[in-house]
């Protein structure tokens, strides 16, 4: 039902991605690594990536944190404010799955639960890439963005093997 041509949109923003940093109650480690990626050693402006101050200007949201109860309504509002296509890069183990706080009383446990809430509120998300790490290295952030843009291939895949005798 999505009226957005994702491939076309990705081609259009490929060399100039405006990102907005959305923290839903993370410990700051991923957040300072995002900032680190902007500074000389990693310099993501090489890829045309620029941090902007409002989700209304953003092509991509850098999402961190396990989504605390207090921040939930505000996070939903921020994502709703983003124009389509909504691209989200979920950074850090907290965002991906709730991390070490996945089942506490004051967090909802990561992006998957948030996606359900977004759906209930009629907010569609067009593409999500999960980037595990605790915290995510600046290189991992770059890799995630490049994966989202289709520049690099995904390395991990689901594996289930049967234990065998050595």
């Amino acid at each position: 039902m999505s009226s957005v041509n994702l491939a076309r949109a990705l081609r259009a923003i490929k060399r100039s991605v405006w990102v907005y940093h959305l923290n839903s109650g993370s410990c700051n480690a991923c957040d300072i690594e995002i900032l680190d990626a902007l500074t000389p050693y990693f310099d993501v402006e090489r890829f045309g990536i620029k941090l902007v101050g409002s989700p209304r200007h953003a092509d991509l949201i850098l999402f961190t944190g396990p989504v605390t109860r207090e921040s939930l309504p505000k996070v939903v509002r921020a994502i709703r404010a983003m124009p389509r296509p909504r691209l989200i890069l979920v950074l850090g183990s907290c965002g991906v799955s709730g991390g070490i706080w996945w089942d506490t009383y004051s967090t909802i446990g990561g992006f998957k639960k948030l996606e359900e809430v977004l759906r209930e509120n009629g907010v569609e998300v067009d593409r999500v890439v999960y980037v595990p790490g605790c915290p995510v290295r600046p290189e991992a952030i770059i890799y995630g963005i490049l994966l989202l843009l289709g520049v690099v291939e995904q390395k991990v895949k689901k594996v289930e093997v049967v234990a065998s005798e050595s």
Partner: peptide
């Protein structure tokens, strides 16, 4: 560390 993925299952 290059663990990015488009799905949680992978």
């Amino acid at each position: 560390f290059e663990l990015s993925s488009t799905s949680l299952e992978s």
